[in-house]
């Protein structure tokens, strides 16, 4: 099964001193290049799952997490797994380690012992890629939330990861910061063909992905394309998720007998489709 970057098999987990299981028999296979959105209510186990992908948590006897062919249980593989699967967290203020953007982008490279000459090139490349050119010497407290998160992503991208995990990376941002970050993630995916796993409880954001995984109380209760997921009213209700406005709009248009195909799930796609319909009329 060489074409899956993520393979999670029978993963159950309970935090120490905790009564309930945070994860219950989770199985998830993600092929290279896919964009997966993991969604679910607060406390449904999304962050816990993400921590397993990065070897921050290790499965016990039964379960297994294999990232790009490397088992997180093998101690010697963990640093390499962290290099393959880079992670960006929720709070923009709590993940910048260094005093300036460029120092922070370099942090992971320094840890990996990358030689100075190569480091300089990779830092600048990532900064440019994330549209932060000119902000190299800025201190964190003089950056906007969106810029801080983009700096964090630049730090991840500098490691040339195969998998980029964003754990609610946009949830503390204002709408423009959120748009900035999502825009950059889309670009990364298109230009680098990186596998992306975003965790979000904003279904508008999830709708952009290739695949949505719905979690509730530590279990995966839904898995499919956005169109497949949004069709299942009960599933969304069970997971206490709110359908995106655009999906509601498409549903009402269909009721009015406007012909809209299944694959249309985002605003852009809807606008394009409606324009095409208008031309044929």
């Amino acid at each position: 099964m060489g074409n899956n970057i993520i393979e999670i098999n029978h993963l159950s987990f309970r935090y120490r001193h905790s009564e309930e299981l945070a994860l219950k028999n989770v199985n998830l296979h993600v092929p290279y290049g896919q964009w997966v959105a993991v969604t679910g209510h607060n406390g449904s186990g999304k962050s816990t799952l993400a921590r397993f992908l990065n070897a921050l948590l290790i499965p016990d006897a039964e379960g297994a997490v294999i990232i790009g062919g490397l088992n997180t249980k093998t101690e010697g593989c963990r640093q390499e797994i962290r290099r393959k699967a880079a992670m960006v967290f929720q709070n923009p203020d709590n993940q910048m380690v260094a005093p300036t953007v460029e120092d922070d982008v370099a942090f992971g490279l320094e840890n990996a012992g990358v030689p100075y000459e190569e480091m300089v090139i990779r830092v600048q490349e990532s900064i440019d890629k994330l549209g932060l050119t000119g902000l190299e010497k800025r201190e964190p407290h003089r950056l906007s939330g969106g810029q801080k998160q983009r700096a964090a992503i630049a730090g991840a991208v500098a490691m040339k990861p195969e998998l980029l995990i964003l754990d609610e990376a946009t949830s503390m941002l204002d709408p423009s910061g959120r748009a900035e970050v999502i825009d950059q993630v889309q670009k990364l995916r298109d230009s680098e063909n990186m596998t992306i796993l975003t965790i979000t409880h904003d279904l508008n954001e999830a709708a952009l992905a290739d695949r949505i995984v719905v979690m509730r109380e530590g279990e995966i209760i839904g898995d499919g394309t956005p169109a497949q997921i949004f069709r299942q009213e009960d599933l969304l209700k069970e997971a206490s998720l709110k359908k995106p406005f655009i999906i509601e709009l498409i549903a009402s248009l269909r009721e009015k007998e406007v012909d809209i195909p299944e694959e249309v799930t985002t605003e852009e796609e809807l606008v394009n489709h409606l324009c095409r319909l208008k031309q044929t009329m």
């Binding site: 921050l56 962290r82 992670m87 967290f89 993940q95 942090f107 320094e110 012992g113 990358v114």
Partner: peptide, 27 residues
């Protein structure tokens, strides 16, 4: 305290394992 905890996790996720074998961006 929350910050310190978050930061520690972020550092670990970014492969920080002390000064050994580390290179420096600033010279």
């Amino acid at each position: 305290f929350k910050r310190a905890e978050d930061l520690a996790v972020a550092m670990e996720a970014r492969g920080y394992a002390g000064g050994h074998g580390r290179t420096k961006f600033r010279i």
